[in-house]
Amino acid sequence: MADTRDIELTVNGESHAANVETRTSLGDFLRHGLGLTGTHMGCEHGVCGACTVMVDGEAVRSCLMLAVQANGHEVTTVEGLAEDDGTLNALQAAFWKHHGLQCGFCTPGMLTTLTAFLRDNPDPSERDVREAISGNICRCTGYQGIVDAALDAAKTMQKGS
């Protein structure tokens, strides 16, 4: 018999109740349980950063957390980042403008990581941004477009606030 638990959590502002097998990672639950396939599972041992989501506002690896541990918590995935009308938010728009993605596999983790980072560091240096994404592996862009996008988004967000 599989060991299961009933959990309740909020994902992108929406409440969900589910019965999960306790060994299921939060990332797998988001993808397979809720159909939110924007979160990408890469290495599944905490190295690549692709599966990063925000739990109670803090960026974490969803492969290194069990779904059952998110019981009672608030999760934000890449699907929850756009503006209410569906348009790209400042960070997403900056990724588009600066060619901050090619294949897109790392992008959800980059966006969730940088969302939490820019909230806590609204005026980062290039070095700060590079350190912030040092735990997110991108094999396409060489990172330059991502760094440019983050720095540009920080400026846009500061003007907007």
Binding site: G46, G49, T52, E58, A59, V60, R61, L64, M65, T113, F117, A132, S134, G135
Partner: peptide, 9 residues
Amino acid sequence: VGHFQTRNR
């Protein structure tokens, strides 16, 4: 130690 995402946990 690791990265800020791992230090959060």
